[in-house]
Design a protein around this nucleic acid. Structure first.
Lengths: 219, 219
DNA sequence: AAGAATTTGACACTCTACTGGCACAATGCT
DNA sequence: AGCATTGTGCCAGTAGAGTGTCAAATTCTT
């Protein structure tokens, strides 16, 4: 479960009139309320009415903003474009998993705000099958995009089996690091954990008993 | 998403009286109906009433068998014990990922019935976030068990970071193979695909362009 | 300021998962 | 066969998600 900064895909680039501002405001207010309440009470013990009370909107309005109760948590989703762009620019000579790792480590460090949001977000999902299901569907999309990007980097128009597998393993490694990080409440340095995990992967696949130390990637 | 034969964890070992037989019967009838209907109409477009009609039981009875609508699909779950046992018995000298692969390949081939069930099962989950969420929770359990087993094989009482990572990577590789297999409707030989996937893993990290051929594991 | 366009709230609904209670039927036991 | 046990059906009911409708409020335009 990779962590990237969250952004609202429906947010307008221009700062529109009062209308658009208010719309965006209630949207994020609802999203915030949902994240907080889901994280504390749990998804099933939070009714849409609760969210509406918290955000001072009517129930009818809620469903004008979101198609279903589940969707409110995913109003913001991960911004993976910068990562993909970096990955696309990596030298085709680098083995794909290493390119993946380097591209991830080349991303700017998460801001304290990003960290807080990520931790809260995952706490919100913790006990709900629906939310986790939605999440993995999103991850599936991420994986597909990574595979496409790896293919492009190598000059292929469509991902082949190796591209898909590399994307899967990269995601899995990130997932592993991410889980450790979350277990510590997002307090440690995620990138250090990620680097160590990728180093360990190399050791695991090659049969080398000792993980290699590798210098930080150029940036 | 690893594939192992499905079995009903609540099925009694002894063939009890008429009562127990009937109970098991309606249980599996409901499970069958659910799998079939979810796979064709989709989870959300199938009401519990539909399932009851199909299985000739009252709605009240349904909820005496299962706690919720989602649970009926998971009445049978994957029987991973034989795999874990094999893995536990693997030589500690073998690198963990290879032990994982060999243990998987040492399992008996899936029966045509197992294959049909697996394909149907995944078709049933396809469009539902709830079901996929439940599924990944199960996978999480699988991963934890594998980590514990890898630790035990190496003489550790609790899994360390490397054990967890190896379990994650093994699962991811299996997942990759499994997805390919499902895309072909479960028609090819799963084990061949699995073996090829594990071979490819090594090449991805080393930059070796050609996957190594490896002989079939001893059995 | 006035009218048009858009957004919101209130109310009254539907639909479905899920539960309590009790009579009835099937099974097990002697 | 007769009684105890246990599973099942029916009925009535709760709760919460999601929708249609229209009047009121807000914002945009000129």
């Amino acid at each position: 479960m990779p962590v990237f900064p969250l952004r609202d895909p429906d947010a307008p680039t221009e700062v529109g009139g009062r209308r658009q501002q208010k719309k965006l405001s209630t949207r994020t207010t609802l999203n915030d309320a949902a994240t907080r309440l889901f994280a504390t009470r749990g998804y099933e013990h939070t009714s849409v009415d609760d969210l509406c009370r918290e955000a001072n909107v009517s129930l009818r309005t809620f469903f004008r903003y979101f198609e279903g109760k589940e969707d409110v948590l995913f109003a913001r989703d991960m911004d993976i474009e910068p990562f993909l762009a970096t990955l696309r620019g990596m030298s085709p000579d680098e083995p794909p998993l290493r390119a993946f790792a380097d591209a991830y480590l080349a991303q700017p460090r998460l801001s304290p705000d990003d960290v807080a949001q990520a931790v809260q977000f995952h706490r919100a999902m913790q006990d709900s099958a629906v939310l986790q299901g939605r999440y993995v569907m999103g991850i599936e999309h991420f994986r597909a995009e990574v595979a496409r990007t790896l293919a492009a980097r190598a000059g292929r128009s469509a991902p082949n089996d190796a591209d898909c597998l590399a994307a899967t393993l990269g995601q899995a490694t990130l997932d592993h690091a991410y889980k450790q990080w979350l277990a510590r409440g997002g307090r440690g340095d995620l990138r250090t954990i990620v680097r160590r995990s990728f180093d360990r992967v190399a050791a695991l696949t090659s049969g080398d008993p000792v993980p290699l130390a590798r210098p930080a990637p150029a940036r």
